[in-house]
Design a binder for these strands. Sequence first.
DNA 1: ACGGTATTTCTAGAATATTGGAAATATGGA
DNA 2: TCCATATTTCCAATATTCTAGAAATACCGT
Lengths: 105, 105
Amino acid sequence: MKIDDAAARLEALGNRTRLQIYRALVRAGRSGTPVGRLQDKLKIPASTLSHHIKSLVAVGLVSQVRESTTLVCHANYDSMQGLVDFLVSECCVDEAECKDAKTAA
Amino acid sequence: MKIDDAAARLEALGNRTRLQIYRALVRAGRSGTPVGRLQDKLKIPASTLSHHIKSLVAVGLVSQVRESTTLVCHANYDSMQGLVDFLVSECCVDEAECKDAKTAA
DNA sequence: ACGGTATTTCTAGAATATTGGAAATATGGA
DNA sequence: TCCATATTTCCAATATTCTAGAAATACCGT
């Protein structure tokens, strides 16, 4: 993963409202959650919610599938995993002796 | 971890420059990196760099130790680990059947 | 085609973040 | 004490993000 992609994903998650949305989707698992249900749960105006979801989709952390009139959102686990891997990768490569740090990470 | 703390850490990492700084520190491992060396490596004006480091320190992702005239920065692995745990925790708790998702996460 | 529900796009004001020069502060050595 | 190096704080300009009302669009059932 390129650093700009990682930064974009982290930035997307680095907002209370968007992190709430993302966590709700993670908790929902495979079945996902429709936009309207997120709106009820989180009490966010529709346009604001739509903007936030859009940015999560834009960076690949969330995907959407239309089911007739409702749009169901899903957390994209692979995307998150890639991000986590990026964060801990190359730990200590610029340092010779860091066994403790490596096991900690 | 509270959601606001997690969001604050993610926001701190969600900026290209700060992510570069953080990654340089992760790569440096236990020995850490002085502020001045980061400045040379990343070619960032001192004041800008200082601002960014300050925000990483503020959220606990980075710690600093003074060694005579230089300030050495370290990536705080525990802090990162807590963040990663938060992100994947409670996966699927609102969904009955999601074994695939759970193993993927 | 029409009506209703779901959701997005348009728009714009307010709030916040980013940047970096200049001045201030910290540290240790001569 | 005085200097040199390291780093931060102050300040202000610029850029970006956040928010949400209103209008527009999408979809389906009738």
